[in-house]
Write a protein that binds this DNA or RNA. Sequence first.
DNA 1: GTCTATAGAACGATAGAC
DNA 2: GTCTATCGTTCTATAGAC
Lengths: 182, 182
Amino acid sequence: MTVTRSSARAKLLDAAATLFYRDGITATGIDRVIAHAGVAKASLYNNFAGKDELVAAYLSVRLERFDQTLATLMEIADPLARIDAFFDRLEANAASGQFGGCPFSRAAVEVNPDSPAHRVIVEFYRRLGSFFAQTLGVDIEDAGVKQLIVCYNGAMSSASVLKDPSLVGAAHDLVRASTMRR
Amino acid sequence: MTVTRSSARAKLLDAAATLFYRDGITATGIDRVIAHAGVAKASLYNNFAGKDELVAAYLSVRLERFDQTLATLMEIADPLARIDAFFDRLEANAASGQFGGCPFSRAAVEVNPDSPAHRVIVEFYRRLGSFFAQTLGVDIEDAGVKQLIVCYNGAMSSASVLKDPSLVGAAHDLVRASTMRR
DNA sequence: GTCTATAGAACGATAGAC
DNA sequence: GTCTATCGTTCTATAGAC
């Protein structure tokens, strides 16, 4: 069995999720990750090619979870109700204690553009745009999609920097009032 | 004249502005800053207490420039035209080659909350909110102000991450269509 | 002399890689 | 655990301006 092997990998991904998101990627050293995971340093390099790959894997886990959320939301038939539910989830997240904004846009500031992590970030925004486009029944290049992306990023960024969850509500109001909903 | 004195400091602030904004703060080492500025390492520590203070000074220069922009915009009497002009400037900036999003929200990801730089970031958002509140003729805690902050952050963040200036235009459309303008 | 500039060595700490 | 590289910082030593 490869129980130990997968366990070390899982513990590392768990520790990475907590530390990279809470303290930042560059500010979090390898030593801190393995200490928090409770594994040996060699276990990291057995499971990942290096820190860059660990960062990419951390974001991939986030992306998977995001996909599941989108799949759940797609079960809502009414487009307007679906978008409402999307921003309701955002508001709930922002109100939670560990909230620190969008993990992908946060990471985008810290990773360099040719990093494997950057590909995951781009993929996240592609899926976000695709979700909005499907819901609005328009092309992904549509202005309405762009407005929703602006509202998402604005909500996450503002609520995070100013530590004020009510800004997500402001973004939600903006979405309700905007032309894209007609 | 104290040409030499102010020159080293100015060169350092110039180099810091370029490198911190383009490559990120943590990714930019002291050695790279002084090499780009063409000054000695001691000159940095003669003019600034350390890297943290240099980062704070870099953001303070940005804040000063932002203040001048706001002062110019305040000369526009009509509130709606003033906000239009604000987002027009954003669009122009985003279309320029060196655009990399809001320097303050970018820095917020990299500096720790008790850093001197963080105080400058908070001050930036205070002045941005104050500008919007004055223009709308409402309190700084008003929902309309929050919506404008969301649009600003959403525009800067989206256009930067996705490298698509048209997202600033989408944010502008959102502002035009929103309830805050009635 | 005093001040600020220069170049560069060297410090301890910590990074990522193996 | 050990390697090497680099981080931010401090210090030595010297040159030029007022």
